[in-house]
Write a protein that binds this DNA or RNA. Sequence first.
DNA 1: AAGTTCGGCTAGTACATGTTAGCGGGATCG
DNA 2: CGATCCCGCTAACATGTACTAGCCGAACTT
Lengths: 211, 211
Amino acid sequence: MPQPRTHRDTAANRPGSPPAAGGPPRAHAIRAAALELFTQRGYAATTMADIGAAVGVRGPSLYKHVSSKQALLAQIMTGTMDALLAAHRTAVAGTEDPTERLRRATEAHVRYHARHRLEAFVGNREIRSLEEPHRTAVLARRDAYEKAFRELVEAGIAAGRFHVASARLASYAILDLGMGVAVWYREDGELTEDQIVYQYGDFALLLVGAG
Amino acid sequence: MPQPRTHRDTAANRPGSPPAAGGPPRAHAIRAAALELFTQRGYAATTMADIGAAVGVRGPSLYKHVSSKQALLAQIMTGTMDALLAAHRTAVAGTEDPTERLRRATEAHVRYHARHRLEAFVGNREIRSLEEPHRTAVLARRDAYEKAFRELVEAGIAAGRFHVASARLASYAILDLGMGVAVWYREDGELTEDQIVYQYGDFALLLVGAG
DNA sequence: AAGTTCGGCTAGTACATGTTAGCGGGATCG
DNA sequence: CGATCCCGCTAACATGTACTAGCCGAACTT
């Protein structure tokens, strides 16, 4: 028999807690816990009770803050894709030089996958767990992102600055490099974020035969 | 109420079917169906009934041929890692030249991920679904594979043939390239297996600054 | 002080799923 | 021709899980 339970008085529980940007703080903590668990175990293998336990609450209590497990995933995935696209646009906005544009886009890509590795990891792997209409929406953004990179490479080829047989293959390769970072990067690893970012930027230019 | 069912008479059902290598033909068909479904939906989201339906049989009937869903996954994963390690050993056996060894290892890596993309895909993504002791066994083989690549790069650096800041980073990059292939490669795509293999072999040498 | 809101909790519902038990038909073997 | 084996089936079991219903205490509001 479970013992009788009374209310817990955690820091996040107290109404006096610091009001965070981006919605109620509790909902934010739940999304963060879900993100971690989705990364570790996968969406299907994560239960609402697991997520609840991670924030010090029973499974059903989560429904006071989020509408469903699927909504939790959808928020994570669409937010991630939007952030990635925004980072890309900012990166390429500053210059018209093809080499510099590709370098900056690659650096932004890799930096995002290192700094937000959980989001990027889940964003890449759980597309199949997303139900419609969110899946279509996320896939559309993914395609747009991929296309943007491919066009960057094509522009460099057209300008005679890049020398590579297939723009498609080169852009896939660069994108895959970044996604790999989200898999193995650790903040306490032997390579710093900047080291990886700059090195991978160089790799991208080598791949397309620039300079 | 479901209608009464009688025995189906599928090709794979008839005892006179061609005896295939590698065990009873029915068990092989089940593994193949499981592989495809694990790829599409993930291990946790695939049910025994799904696998059964793919081979024209009810879920429980599968237990006449396999011992459990987990065993199905374990067979796929350990078989894949063994095949990958074997391909690597064969690839590097022919020469002592660091550049040529890295090229051949990369080509073998990429070719495996293209030709056996389902196995490679599941092998990369479902490690967390593997229970002990299989998970530890597969991870050990994965580490060995990764280490073999890193040592290939280190050997080239030591010989003064490669010029790259971090052997670890370069080997991760090369391995990630191959894994990406398993995600997007399609037999009917616009790039042939050989085109990808040779191009990626070149990419690997560019990354490590050979030549 | 009374009422309202917030956000926990337990209990319960509806359903899905891995696996076992046991049945039965057809092919093979002696 | 009878026994056995192979391999399908349905039924059932045990468990797990997303989510709903409804209760209740504490804090905030007026």
